[in-house]
Design a protein around this nucleic acid. Structure first.
Lengths: 702, 702
DNA sequence: AGTTTTCGCACCTAAGTGATAAGT
DNA sequence: ATACTTATCACTTAGGTGCGAAAA
């Protein structure tokens, strides 16, 4: 009743793309044409649209016949899609309907070296009332999509743990339990939906996503709690319409090096300086003898390669999310002849810093400390050097700080992918990197050593049957790659029990280009607020209850839902909460994707889910479920190895702190039951035990 | 053989929306699901997308059930689109599939008064190598769409006549025959496709369209010839996918007051000053006692209401085409509580300046002069006053120059529509407006009198059967509203024989939001390049030949096709060239829509067409066909009256210079034949004689 | 008293604008 | 020399940054 066993005993296919370190997820699902459509809202109005841009040369390639297929997908009758191809002009393959080509997305983080530099220091992101961008821009390069299929790309930011932090004695410390979560919002990339070919053409940037601490934000910005740690996530959904989002498979990627602590004012001067040195908009604060830079001191590092220098290479083909004002952050597209200026090191054979997994797990008992240390190693000494040399060797060459020449490397996406493969295979080594050496020194080594630590995205793929019972909670395993000082797997097992309707989009995203309908909400099964778990009652039936959103505003970035509770007085089917993150997957290579877990990666049937929580009565309760199933890969586990867990709960992982189950704060009476149900499901799905009752953060460790 | 008679004797429905002056075009066409898809290209890549923005509050309205219908349109099975509506939440109407609701688009030009001010002086648009926006931004307000249906909105700029101009003695003079046309590009509004509701929510702006004189432009900008006169056109296409564009019905609207002469440097100081005074980006050049403004002299008009003042009212809900950098041009949206600051006068009962038609026609022999006078009345004295008072009376009141208060007026779109109706009925009057009084005086009166001259858009609607033979050339009649000094009907009968594939979009428009496929080209029938007219041979058969575009680049604004010729070595079916413009329609009110012509406006079968030329071997030859059928409304002709022309050639119009048939420069040997064929077709279709062999512009009249 | 948040500010990028002077 | 074109410039809007003082 809780969960159909078919999800568990489905035959598993090779979950791992051979040698890539990326999850291999053949996609055969047909567009859910036969899926009951339920509650969808489409009231967006075109407005204020910065226009979309296609880079020169985008169409230069021979005409893809998939265009035709695409036409069919777009609503044309397939039979009408291909006629009389001018044979002499055709440079393309076949005219057959070409149904549902399998895809196998491989995602790499752009500017990984920059992210690593920040991560070493404990990344901080300023959140303001008016909304603030993330500075190291979240940008990914994608491969392995079905060129003809349409995809919707999304991003969200979830709590990385259950702690509140404070910056004390120049380092981040846990300062208690997390505050109530803010309403979650899913940011839909404004280009969505677009074809795989389009997405793969250049790095996909999410510059338009803005962070705010304004709980009553009306722009659709992502609302965060200051002094809390967060983990951005990236989702790929194969769907040609936003309306299908709730019923589609989400493939989720997590890059542990992109976690950060939200702040209203920078705490760590090194972070500040790193931002100033790399963010072109902060150029005015650089120590270029202009005076007036008191606070900056000696932090400026002469040899530090500035991020903006890497960028600006590709002026023409901006990033896909680039808006008019994204000076340098989006410049290193592979599309450009100069190629992505972003982390060249990143593409080299990744140094294998894997295996830290085991070590990380051993740190379980230091929960609080780990919470703090995870992102603020500013003071911690781990020598980063050991790895960089090797990685560099395999790469063309270590690019000079002043490089603009990463073109050769950037151009080869295959290279980057390849590096990932190697990563996967090298996981036997475990290296501890000295965390940032204080002040300038660490900055120097950053681009080199830090650039190629073995971080890889963790991937989770779920497929939600429309009548998904209870919701399969999946945990997003974070590849807690022991980059340098990777304290331990993050408690990324954030409760992902978010209202499915919480989608946010870039300005205008919904209104135009096929996104015209506003997905105000999605249907959910079972009335959670009534105390019944979604998986029960109507939840198990494929008859979702459509519901209308009485959304109060349409923001430039999305459709913020009013806070949970009271908004959805009627029962609805939720597809499933996405995986709360499993605790960090220590193996860097294996960490690339949760899908390696045979269970999760089984190509079909997959789980569909909305990576959000089921709406609950009160905002605080949104985090009811902490994923007990931190389906982390065992250290050193090979892709093939993961297959052993197929239908059984699988090997429990040792990371105790993985999913912190149900926060004490939120679960209400009736919800408890639901939670238990969900947890059971989780266990089944993930094959991991979900015990952890206590919050990982007892209180301030100090 | 040339053209199927069914187009001619189709029963006509009331072509005119009662009292609106707008064409009434009931739309029952089903999305061409059964239309043979042929050559389509879909290779766009997401890139550099300024994000789209949805204004806060866009979703505030009750959830539209059409959202569901929209979902069905988007590719979902209709049967699956509506389920279990949560009755208690539903504020909407019915759940029925709601198929194909008729629409009746009414389009009004935004900031008409500003346009009029410029037009009086002879609008000049700077074109640069790097691309330049139009200053009075082309912006329209739309009504009467099917809220649930999806539409693609387009804009293009076609030659207004066949002349080359020079600015001599402070006035524009014809200086010979037009230079070879540049490759045409169709600009697709980046928000396309979007629902009628979305388009109607606020004025639709085309700010992102850029003009250039760089023939090798790689951005997709619209390429124009300097010193030539052009006429922007606006198109509404009911289609939910760009791929269907070539097979869809184009409803074309022409606003005569938006014509302009392309220049590389301003010639008329008054134009310069008007731009400076109204364009916020040129604020730095205003005579605000800053000194350094030598050339500006006394042109600054104290009482002149600045365009930018009108704008800025609606900060939040930007225009639909507004990008990040569109300071003031797109601010007067009706969406805003303050309402559109744009021409309030425009909405009043339009003054009936009609009837000038006859007069204009009488000026036929002064072709050269008319060419010149049409847009450069700077020196010509025609008293504008006669009309303005009346128009003002009907309007609320003449807004004060410093008004910000047009909110009350702007808010009532119904008003604007109503005014148009009146316009239509008032066409019996013909008024000559004094052209701009020289220097400041005219500027003063501009906002008043000029603001409400009877300009209305001309509308042409065609429906192209996929197997459209030869192509039905339709002429776009320009309502040569004798605003002030409307010299005469413009030779808007520009050859619209453009390659159907010449579409340009705003940056990224193609890549995302459902526009992901790039429409690189469309199919055409018959091998034009082979010397056979499209209407012949395969043209008459419904089997279009798909062809692939070997386009060399994808520009930010579109997919520029390589210049005509050599690109499409294979035969293809072209849908039909859109109307070359009929010469000016003197009647202002009648001019609102060509559809009033019974022939053109017959609701079904309508003609489908691509408002572009069939590709020809050489760029110059693109203008092979000058529309012989300048289907202009006869002066004072009522909508019902136009019905007489239905199948017969109809009353020939007196405007000799209307369609200048085949330019001497381009037509090559084999093309000649095709041209003749097309001309014949034109005659049949338009019921107008297409004689005029000689170019309207003999040479410099002076 | 200490920490965190807010606000205005100066400084930046990005891009639209006409003037000007130099080309053609 | 004329007439038009081009590049550079100063100036603008719009918006992203961190600073620093003030507020909470």
């Amino acid at each position: 009743m809780i969960i159909s066993p078919r999800f568990l005993d489905a035959p598993m296919r090779d979950p791992v793309f051979p040698g890539t370190g990326m999850a291999y997820h053949p996609f055969h699902a047909h567009r859910p044409a036969d899926f009951p459509m339920s509650a969808f809202l489409a009231a967006a109005q075109p407005s204020f649209f910065p226009a979309l841009t296609l880079p020169p040369g985008a169409l230069t390639k021979p005409i893809p016949d998939h265009a035709i297929a695409g036409a069919a997908e777009a609503g044309l009758h397939p039979a009408l899609s291909h006629h009389h191809q001018a044979a002499h002009l055709r440079t393309l393959k076949s005219l057959e309907p070409e149904e549902e080509v399998e895809d196998d997305p491989k995602v790499t983080l752009e500017a990984k070296d920059l992210w690593d530099q920040f991560h070493k220091l404990g990344t901080e992101m300023v959140i303001t009332k008016s909304g603030r961008r993330m500075f190291p821009p979240f940008k990914v390069r994608i491969n392995g999509l079905d060129k003809k299929a349409k995809y919707i790309l999304l991003m969200d930011i979830v709590a990385a743990d259950d702690c509140r932090y404070k910056f004390h004695n120049s380092r981040w410390m846990v300062a208690g339990k997390a505050d109530p979560e803010m309403p979650k919002r899913m940011y839909i990339h404004p280009d969505s939906p677009a074809t795989g070919e389009q997405w793969m053409a250049k790095p996909v940037a999410f510059h338009k996503l803005k962070l705010t601490n304004n709980i009553s934000d009306k722009h659709g910005f992502t609302i965060l709690n200051s002094m809390h740690k967060y983990q951005p996530r990236f989702h790929i959904v194969r769907a040609n319409d936003i309306l299908k989002l709730p019923y589609s498979t989400f493939r989720t990627y997590v890059f542990p090096e992109t976690d950060f602590i939200a702040v209203t004012a920078y705490q760590n001067d090194k972070i500040t300086q790193l931002k100033i040195d790399n963010n072109p908009f902060a150029k005015g604060f650089r120590d270029t003898g202009n005076g007036r830079r008191e606070k900056r001191k000696q932090l400026t590092l002469p040899s530090l390669r500035l991020y903006e220098d890497q960028c600006k290479v590709d002026r023409d083909g901006g990033d896909s999310d680039a808006s008019s004002s994204e000076p340098a952050t989006g410049r290193e597209t592979a599309h450009s002849p100069l190629g992505p200026a972003s982390s060249p090191l990143r593409f080299g054979r990744p140094s294998r810093d894997e295996k830290t997994l085991t070590d990380s797990e051993q740190e379980l008992d230091h929960q609080e400390e780990r919470c703090a240390g995870g992102s603020s190693p500013g003071q911690d000494p781990h020598s980063p050097t050991p790895f960089s040399p090797r990685g560099e060797d395999r790469v063309k060459e270590r690019p000079s700080p002043e490089k603009k020449d990463d073109y050769p490397e950037s151009r080869k996406q295959s290279d980057s992918v390849f590096s990932i493969r190697n990563l996967e295979k090298d996981k036997s080594e475990n290296r501890h990197r000295k965390d940032a050496e204080s002040s300038k020194k660490d900055a120097d080594c950053g681009p080199l050593g830090a650039g190629k630590d073995g971080f890889s995205p963790l991937m989770v793929q779920t497929e939600s049957p429309s009548h998904f019972s209870a919701g399969h909670l999946q945990s997003l395993a974070l590849s807690g790659l022991p980059n340098q000082q990777f304290f331990s797997p993050l408690n990324t097992g954030q409760p992902l029990f978010i209202h499915p309707g919480q989608f946010a989009m870039a300005p205008g995203a919904f209104s135009a280009m096929g996104m015209s309908h506003l997905l105000a909400s999605v249907s959910g099964a079972g009335g959670l607020e009534n105390g019944s778990l979604a998986g029960q009652g109507s939840a198990s039936t494929p008859t979702p209850f459509p519901f209308h959103l009485s959304q109060h505003m349409l923001a430039s970035q999305g459709i913020p839902m009013p806070t949970f509770g009271g908004l959805f007085p009627y029962p609805y089917t939720y597809m499933a909460a996405a995986a709360a993150a499993a605790s960090a997957l220590p193996t860097s290579t294996a960490a690339t994707s949760l899908s390696r877990n045979p269970f999760l990666s089984s190509s079909r049937p997959r789980l569909r889910f909305n990576p959000y929580q089921i709406p609950v009565s009160i905002p605080q309760s949104t985090n009811l479920l902490t994923t007990g199933l931190s389906s982390t890969l065992n250290p050193g586990s090979e892709s093939s190895k993961s297959g052993s867990r197929e239908t059984s709960p699988g090997p429990e992982h040792h990371n105790h702190k993985a999913g912190s189950s149900q926060r004490s704060g939120s679960p209400k009476g009736p919800l408890k039951e639901s939670i238990n149900e969900l947890q059971n499901i989780q266990r089944l799905v993930s094959g991991l035990e979900s015990q952890r009752e206590s919050s990982p953060c007892r209180d301030s460790p100090k």
